[in-house]
Design a binder for these strands. Structure first.
Lengths: 397, 397
DNA sequence: GGACTTACTTCTATGTGGAAGTTAATGTGG
DNA sequence: CCACATTAACTTCCACATAGAAGTAAGTCC
């Protein structure tokens, strides 16, 4: 309920009120630069934003005066000679943000600072996936958070499936939702602004602002879990696929003679790489049900069936990564999700496969792996709330 | 020798002199907009460039005064009501540009206007691929052109292989060149500024400025000929692969059980799609040597061997196009080169294959096919000369 | 201590967006 | 047929943000 700050009821015109005072685009760019990159000197900010030093003096002044930025006392440690710069840092107090990841069984929640650092976690098992039941579980989490963090600025909600206007879950297969206006529902209960988004889109935004994609021109994200997610970020802007991140990978055939599983077409990324598909393949081969983590363990210990399945998956993943490099030409690929444990066991096989399908003359592969659990997805949703509340209304799509 | 305009000898500091008077970036943007899009009203230009109408009044004035732009006499035909716009057009006189495409056997040449319209063609067979012999053949073509077009502004040269600083052919396998400084050589002979570039890169630039890629955010080019070329253009800027367009496709495995040919790995794009590979496959199957165009004819008439080879190629091409769509997400793919006759014969098979490997939910395929001969490659090189001379020195690269 | 380097500030010329006004067409009602 | 509203292109003018130059500050290097 957190009534103290419940100023943004549902249906407010112009979207959630920003937590920052009204800023010009240039001022906002400076603030976001500091927010996403940590304490930075004026000259460094000017360089990154492609502005003149003079402009930064002017832009920083009102931001410091209004209490949004803070000028560091100790000069920043400089590499060489010259006058050291004075770092500017952003004031994160008093705000905190809530991120929620909704699966069919559980609502995962986190509290983060403005800089997206997770400071608290909390889950609720779901008895039912009905929107009202989910909203009540979410509300319960938020109530618990609000006791400890009275200044909650907003809530980000991530879920699988397509979402419209950061508000309506148009089609969420795992939850069985179709056209559920979840944001108003939760705003009504909590009195806080709520942003709903596809969970993968939220993770991509989080990595673009605060993670591996910071400052890159071209950046790709590939997640492996219950499904495969692929996203491309160009100049800080995610390229939104027209279908809103719906099961694209089911037709990415990586090996025409690959395994046939209940998920996706024969030899597709979905059929070869998702957690379920790998578990299915081992079950089909051995007759016994083994969980994903155990399969990785078995493969590590050279178990024949597990090794074969994991080896094929590694080769397929290499092809997939090589395709991304060949055609999207990103400067970096981030590999995330629950299913990237594969890289620990068969990382070198994956890299060999990448190299076998890439041009030998081009730059080395820049691949980053980040194992992520459901709380990381929740953090992604929190970042979306941060973006919307920091930018004001019109934060993209 | 066309000595009348031979003011830019080799080694001039600051690169070739622009043919336009010194312009501010905004003025240049306006001029280029008119150059690449044809006669356009001020308000339309403002909309496209994201500027205010007021700015366009200011920017257009000096451009018209200096004689670079011309205000149309007849108002542009407007759709609805309101005051009709006055079209601005660019003055192309008196300049012409030369584009040369160099293969191992022949130098292909074209003359174009500033708007890249081809107005003249001319070839020279090569006795030898030695740089001096090639330069002499090129010089001979330019001399012929100069008789008819006295105001040649510059020469663009396109060749396969990697090129440095738009001047030095670092490595050109078909010509057997390594580290040949061809631009100075030809500048010395002709007295004209010379821009050397990888032929594919030049074609991509041409399509970005004057062709299918105009005004698109994300645009991909795929060429099929003696080799496979792939390029991605983002916001009008080609993404330059770190290897400078060297045989990337030899490891793009489209069908692991595909044919093995002398070119590229088994089932690779090179092995399945290039003109040579298709000719090789038919030769291997039938024992007789048949040329590419005849193979297409045979396939059209249901000849078994030709149909099989072309059918497999069509399926492979569909996979390749689907990959590009899936991972680079361009708004349009342009298919060009000598080997796109495949689309005439097996276009529907290609499209079926594309659809089979793409997400059924996403936007329909936006594919454009443009059969191109060597003169089209020469035109691409001419566009590069236009770009460099229009932008002045620092035109990328 | 002086040369040097880099960060930051101050000042000014300039390019830009936006508001308000003008012009040239179409559409509408008497 | 003519007055008047409407629409959209274009012009004029002003407030203002920006780049760039010049100056000052705060360190390192020799």
């Amino acid at each position: 309920m957190n009534g103290s700050k419940g100023s943004n009821g549902p249906g407010d015109p112009g979207g959630p009120a920003p937590i920052w005072p009204p800023l010009t685009p240039a001022e906002r760019a400076v603030a976001i630069e500091v927010l996403t990159n940590g304490p930075t000197s004026r000259s460094e900010i000017a360089r990154r934003l492609g502005m003149s030093g003079g402009s930064l003096t002017r832009l920083a002044k009102p931001l410091i005066d209004s209490g949004l930025l803070l000028e560091g006392l100790t000069p920043v440690a400089t590499a060489g000679q010259g006058r050291p710069g004075r770092p500017l840092d952003i004031v994160t107090d008093p705000w905190h943000f809530v991120g929620l990841k909704i699966t069919g069984e559980t609502v995962y929640g986190v509290v983060t600072t403005l800089k997206s650092t997770v400071v608290r976690r909390e889950d609720r098992k779901l008895g039912s996936a009905e929107p009202e039941a989910v909203a009540e579980a979410a509300h319960s989490i938020v109530r618990t958070f609000a006791e400890e963090f009275p200044h909650l600025a907003g809530i980000g909600v991530g879920l699988a499936g397509s979402v419209r206007e950061r508000s309506v879950a148009v089609d969420s297969p795992y939850l069985g939702w179709k056209g559920v206006s979840f944001a108003p529902l939760l705003e009504e209960l909590t009195g806080l602004p709520v942003v709903v988004e596809n969970d993968f889109a939220a993770l991509v935004e989080a990595e673009t602002w605060f993670g591996s994609g910071r400052g890159l021109d071209r950046f790709a994200v590939l997640t492996i879990g219950a499904g495969i997610g692929y996203g491309l970020v160009i100049n800080g802007e995610p390229v939104r696929p027209s279908d809103g991140y719906r099961g694209t990978a089911e037709r990415w055939i990586l090996d025409p003679s690959g395994p046939l599983t209940p998920h996706g077409e024969r030899g597709s990324a979905t059929a070869m790489l998702t957690v379920q598909s790998i578990e299915y393949q081992v079950r089909a081969a051995t007759g016994s049900t083994v969980r994903y983590e155990e399969i990785l363990d078995l493969a590590r210990r050279q178990d024949p069936a597990a090794s074969r399945v994991i080896g094929e998956a590694a080769r397929a993943l290499g092809i997939l990564i090589a395709n991304i490099y060949n055609f999207a030409m990103p400067q970096k690929i981030l590999l995330a999700g629950e299913g990237v444990g594969l890289m620990d066991v068969a990382g070198s096989a994956v890299l060999d496969s990448v190299d076998a399908h890439r041009n030998p003359h081009s730059d080395p592969v820049n691949l980053e792996t980040k194992v992520s659990d459901f709380h990381d997805w929740a953090r992604g949703a929190a970042v979306l709330a941060i973006q919307v509340l920091v930018l004001g209304d019109g934060a993209g799509g």
